Simulated assay, not measured.
Amino acid sequence: MQAGGNRERAKLRVRERGLTSVNVHPLATLALAAAGVGLLTWFAAGRPQHSGSGPRRHFHPRSDVANTNAAQRLNHGSTLLAASVLLDSGLEHYRGQYFNRAMYTPVLVSSAVLASSLHGAGDAGARSSRVRHAVQALAGLTGVVGLGFHAYNVGKREGGYRWENLFYAAPIGAPFALTLAGVLGGAAERVRDADPRDALLLGLPAGPLLAAGTALGLAGTVGEAGLLHFRGAYHNPAMFLPVSVPPLAGALLAWAAVRGSGRRPLTRGWLWATAALGLGGVGFHTYGISRKMGGWRNWSQNLLSGPPLPAPPAFTGLALAGLAALDLLERREHA
């Protein structure tokens, strides 16, 4: 009984304080497992087709290519989101010492989604893949379940849903990035099989639906970034960028969805700015880690306690999905 009580108290201390440094060996083992899952997914999906290979449908070849290009851009967005989830959840759950075995799930599922999305991004064929589609559906479900786990983690703490717990408990909105990765990857497979003259998702026009969905995804990502940057007291003026540039891109994208028009240079330009911000955010977070005690010489501790390196590219992935939505909107106008 005493040994069991000691284990429970140790778990509680881990949950409250987190690990203080990175032990490379457990992470290396987990990385090998994730790589194995990714490779199995890649080979199960089959060999990617080159442009013009494989049987063609009755649609016009130029339209097939246009659909495939939009699908590949969605795959690029899904790839970046999956990579962000894989690295971020791997480190954050390691800080929690994987005290709950379910914490391995997003690492393994996101590695499968990453392989699936990379496979789709390199597939110039006009046919969808059942394996890729199944993996993306699994990712969407896993993200929703993870959202429940994180919401429970915050609510069970003393005081429940108050600012301190939202700051330091499991990030409540983080699992939804995996759902977004799965949704974008699944949409890519649907777009490949859709009639290029009027691509549909869930019985609705694909362009407006993807534009509206991406705008909502940007809003959620902005909320998560805003909460964590507020915890950091916005001590660097650059911390205001993720709560100013992406919201305008999302608003412009939502307006494009309402108007049903993809010919919007301002919206495209702001989406590209959001994509650049996501990549530039990695540089800012790298600088933030270097400013902590010991800098990168003390990387094993500062990677866990500093700003999350893998998080900002989520903006880039969503921006690419928004650009694909605009492409579909514009093609529908000309159909």
Rank of each mutant, 00 (worst) to 15 (best):
M1Y: 04
Q2F: 09
K11Q: 05
L12W: 13
R13K: 12
G18R: 04
N23E: 15
T29S: 12
L30T: 04
L32H: 10
A34Y: 07
G36L: 05
G38S: 08
G38E: 10
H50S: 14
G52I: 08
S53T: 11
R56T: 14
R57P: 12
P61H: 11
L74P: 03
L74F: 06
H76C: 00
T79P: 06
A83Q: 02
S84K: 03
V85M: 00
L86C: 02
L87Q: 09
E92S: 15
Y94R: 09
R95W: 03
Q97S: 14
Q97L: 11
Y98F: 13
R101P: 02
Y104R: 02
L108P: 03
L108Y: 02
V109I: 15
S111G: 06
V113T: 13
S116F: 01
L118S: 00
A124R: 09
S128L: 10
S128C: 00
S128H: 12
R130F: 11
Q136K: 07
L138G: 13
L138W: 13
L138P: 10
G146C: 03
Y152C: 06
R157I: 00
E164F: 10
N165M: 09
L166I: 01
L178G: 03
T179P: 03
A181N: 02
G185Q: 06
R190V: 06
P196F: 11
R197L: 14
A199S: 14
A199Q: 11
L204H: 05
A206R: 01
P208I: 04
A212L: 12
L218S: 04
G220Y: 00
G223A: 13
E224W: 11
G226Q: 02
G226K: 04
G226E: 10
R231Q: 09
H235M: 00
M239S: 07
F240D: 01
F240M: 11
L248V: 15
A249V: 03
G250Y: 07
G250W: 08
A251S: 02
L252V: 00
W255M: 06
W255D: 05
V258C: 06
G262E: 14
R264M: 08
T267Q: 10
T267A: 15
T267H: 08
W272V: 15
A276M: 11
G278E: 05
H285K: 11
G288R: 11
R291I: 05
K292F: 05
M293E: 14
M293H: 15
G294N: 10
G294E: 09
G294R: 01
G295D: 09
S300Y: 00
Q301M: 09
N302W: 01
L303S: 03
L304I: 07
S305I: 09
P308F: 02
P310Q: 06
P312F: 03
F315N: 05
G317C: 09
G317W: 09
A324Y: 07
A325W: 07
L328V: 11
L328Q: 05
L329G: 02
E330D: 15
A335Y: 06
